[in-house]
Design a protein around this nucleic acid. Structure first.
Length: 482
RNA sequence: GGUCACGUCGUCUAGUGGUUAGGACUCCAGGUUUUCAUCCUGGCAAUCGUGGGUUCGAUUCCCACCGUGAUCACCA
């Protein structure tokens, strides 16, 4: 049975640079009807951040990456916090000690610093094993425990990078158990993955240089190697640097607050550095589960491109609307402008239906719908600088708008359909081009750079408001002329 | 510095010993009895990192170089 895991350490939020190491194992587990385990690697007390675990769980839930075993869920391979698995690491460590493959390290920090400095001066990589003590004392809790390396050549297969080699120079006496009694990642992850029956481990390629040590540990521990899947880095938008929090990588949930749909986020991230060989761009979670293939993961790092995410999000908004507009609408609750606070959902839904297809993010609602809820500030310069409108004089524009308002006021049934007919009729009468006639009315009622189709906008606005705004602009024209 | 990995339009990518090197995003132009957006059509854009080989022929195979990234913790 396939068992994969995502094993974050609770030191902060999940950012877009490392969320793929949650997505891919999830896809693989689901594809093979296996199990996806969430394990919290909380062995570093110093970097532990209160609330980080909750943030991580929240992010996974939002993306729809439900874990089969882990925090909140339990399962047969628990516990799922490394601090609760302490005894296990000690037990495994004692086996290594018994076999002479681990020893107590009594080096002082001063000595360590000296060794490092020497190595640096000699322009050689620092290897602790060159300073391995002759007769180390018996190991007790409270002392660092080191692995006793027996450096050699290793060859292994990586699902994305293919056959890889690690020479003796990559292997050292790494710390297994720290002086605080907790294991290091290097040791803990192997113990856990083995005891949990993990079949595939997926992680960032920054672990590649450590593979020599890991391979030695698998061997010394006498446990089988899992399938190794190292993922290339996601690079920042401008530079070539690996995306990291230090350089301002946003958290995945920041994008939720920006109005990105989880479907779009998952889709975009999954396809950053992976494709199924076709020219398709949009995938649902189910399609990803079906089509995902490890060997089609890209080997080179990919740059994170927010523009394409935005485009994809727009696509997803339209798709989700077509599938279930009410459900999508329910997700817009936090994205309306302040002035819409007391407006009924029914009213907002009407607006949503006519504007959804020009949104790139849900948060666009905040800036693109304000004129539905409050009278816009009259800004005559928008009319004066409009490409089509600036060709006409103010008195002409005033006349057209005034005639339009009068014509519209005769309309009894203020529906989108009736408005469309009436507007066309009035335009014919005015002998103006659509760009002029509709553009003028549109600006008069909205003073916004974009808005939905005019008849829809007017209909949702209501007869009274729409006409009042048009009259206000007519008045403004007249004042200008005096 | 050692080690490891990577290198096709600006970006994400497809691709094969012989292709007009394909698609998507961005950008530009045109179109849709209505602006903006959507949508449609078209366009710009990669001498496939560079230099050597192997070959009738190389983006594709080999080597070297260059460039980029990662890593060398009692962090993960």
């Amino acid at each position: 049975m396939t068992i994969t895991r995502f094993a974050p350490s609770p030191t902060g939020y999940i950012h877009i640079g490392n969320v793929r190491s949650a997505i891919y194992p999830y896809l693989v587990a689901k594809q093979e009807q296996g199990s996806f385990i969430l394990r919290i690697e909380d062995t570093d007390q110093a970097r532990y951040v209160e609330g980080a675990t909750e943030l991580i769980l929240d992010t996974l839930k939002w993306l729809g990456l439900e874990w089969d075993e882990g925090p909140e869920k339990g399962g047969e391979h628990g516990p799922y916090y490394q601090t609760q698995r302490k005894d296990l690491y000690i037990e495994w460590a004692k086996k290594l000690i018994a076999e002479g493959r681990a020893y107590a390290d009594t080096t002082t920090p001063e000595e360590m610093a000296k060794y490092r400095e020497e190595a640096q001066k000699a322009k050689k990589p620092f290897l602790f094993r060159e300073h391995r003590p002759e007769n180390p004392p018996e190991w007790k809790l409270g002392m660092p425990l080191r692995f006793k390396a027996e450096p050699k050549d290793y060859t292994y297969e990586d699902a994305v990078y293919g056959e890889l080699h690690m020479g003796p120079e990559t292997q050292d006496d790494i710390i297994l158990i720290k002086s605080d009694g907790l294991p290091t990642y290097n040791f803990a992850h192997i113990v856990d993955d083995s005891s949990m029956g993990i079949t595939h481990i997926m992680r960032g390629q920054e672990y590649l240089p450590s593979m020599g040590n890991y391979l030695a540990l698998y061997e010394a521990l006498g446990v089988p190697r899992p399938v190794f899947v190292h993922l290339p880095h996601i690079l920042g938008p401008s530079g070539n640097k690996k995306l990291s929090k230090r350089d301002g990588a946003k958290s995945v949930t920041d994008y939720r607050n920006d109005g990105i749909l989880p479907e779009a986020m998952l889709n975009y991230l999954a396809c950053l550095g992976w494709n199924d060989g076709t020219e398709d761009e949009m995938y649902t979670k189910e399609e990803l589960i079906e089509k995902f293939k490890l060997d089609r993961i890209q080997r080179a790092g990919a740059r994170f491109d927010e523009t394409k995410l935005l485009w994809l999000n727009g696509q997803w908004i339209r798709r989700r609307f077509a599938e279930d507009p009410k459900k999508l609408f329910a997700e817009t609750a936090n994205f309306w402008p302040e002035s819409a606070k007391n407006v009924s959902d029914e009213e907002k839904y009407k607006i949503f239906c006519i504007i959804y297809d020009r949104l790139k993010t849900l948060s666009d609602l905040r800036t693109m719908t304000t004129y539905f809820f409050e009278d816009p500030t009259i800004d005559m310069s928008m009319i004066q600088t409009n490409k089509a409108l600036k060709k006409l004089s103010e008195s002409e524009l005033c006349q057209i708008l005034s005639d339009a308002a009068n014509g519209l006021s005769e309309l009894n049934e203020w529906s989108a359909e009736m408005l469309q007919n009436k507007l066309n009729e009035l335009m014919a009468k005015s002998q103006q081009k659509p760009a002029v006639f509709f553009g003028l009315i549109r600006l008069s009622v909205s003073f916004a750079p974009f808005s939905p189709a005019l008849h829809d906008t007017l209909s949702v606005l209501g007869k009274e408001k729409a006409l009042a705004r048009m009259h206000a602009v007519v008045t403004a024209f007249k004042n200008d002329q005096q």
